[in-house]
């Protein structure tokens, strides 16, 4: 590589893209790790029930379990389509 090439090769810093992507995926996977095994199944069945009444997409239902010292809270978030 010549001197000229060295200064010319201003490629985008791909490492920072890698870092950003990693931070997102790792946070997502850690969140899922602490969740009970039955959650995906529960989510599917909830979606099926809601669909009897409203047309929704899979990603419009979020189910999450939050554990506190004294109790656990099952959080259910359903986004309804605008009509």
């Amino acid at each position: 590589m010549s001197l000229l090439d060295y200064f010319r090769s201003k490629k985008p810093a791909t490492a920072s893209i890698a870092k950003e992507r990693l931070q997102i995926i790792v946070a997502h996977e850690r969140g899922r790790r602490d969740q009970p095994d039955y959650l995906p199944q529960l989510q599917q069945e909830l979606i099926a029930v809601i669909r009897k009444y409203v047309q929704i997409d899979d990603d419009m239902v979020q189910v999450q379990l939050d554990k506190n010292d004294s109790c656990s809270v099952l959080e259910l978030n359903v986004t309804l389509p605008e009509d």
Binding site: K11, P12, A13, T14, A15, S16, A18, K19, L22
Partner: peptide, 11 residues
């Protein structure tokens, strides 16, 4: 790492 092609230790 210096060229921004590789994740750094800190990252």
């Amino acid at each position: 790492v210096v060229r921004g092609e590789m994740l750094s230790v800190g990252d």
